[in-house]
Amino acid sequence: MSLIAVTELKKRFGANEVLKGINLDIMPGEVIAIIGKSGSGKSTFLRCINGLETVDEGSILVAGAQLLPDEVHLKALRLKVGMIFQQFNLFPHLSAGRNVMLSQMVVKKTGKAQAEAMARRQLERVGLAHKFDAYPDELSGGQQQRVAIARALAMEPIALLCDEITSALDPELVAEVLAVVRELAAEGMTLMMVTHEMKFARDVCSRVVFMHEGRVHEVGPPEEVFSAPKTVELQRFLGHGHA
């Protein structure tokens, strides 16, 4: 059974229909890269799956449960699906360790000692065990993003949504974040990531989704999508077919 099932998903901002009927089934352990031009609706799509945007039509099922826009269902959904943002969004008034502990204690009512042990484990996992007491503004962008990943992992989600998580980073810091994602993929975490890192998508992802004007325009395994794009739009996006 698919872990995330999106059916005829539509989303409008006023008169502007941004998602025009998205269908996508994701199996457990799949790593999906979402590519496409800016404005094609990639972020909106991920945000819908995390309940940050309300859905106008269609349905989203996560682990068999329907996404409904009330606070109880949203909380249940967000415990299953974590999200990492382009701008890290660490809580600046809390240390790295506290960032990872907070939602465990507040949302899951985990005890402090247990939350701290989990935080140390997850920071270790992203290679930042030694930064437990550092505040976000004492960390590099790459380190901040890794803390954000640890923070999401501490909630033990069954899937992670990543929206251009390396786009705000200096080029030399991209690799350390991608290495963490690669590790997660290898451990079997289900991942949906909007990315411009084509080489990474080719190496790590099981499927590539090309979005165009609010629709899934083309989808397939990376070899196919990158080496033999079928549609003109994808060829153009990948820089082929100008001839």
């Binding site: 995390n50 940050l52 999200m83 969004n89 809580f91 907070l102 507040v106 999401a152 909630m155």
Partner: peptide, 22 residues
């Protein structure tokens, strides 16, 4: 920053929890 609301929401916090802790 708006991202603080979104990050805390995506971690499952309710509105009062977001206000109180973030």
């Amino acid at each position: 920053a708006k991202g603080q609301w979104e990050a805390s929401a995506s971690l499952g916090m309710g509105r009062l929890q977001q206000l109180r802790y973030v």
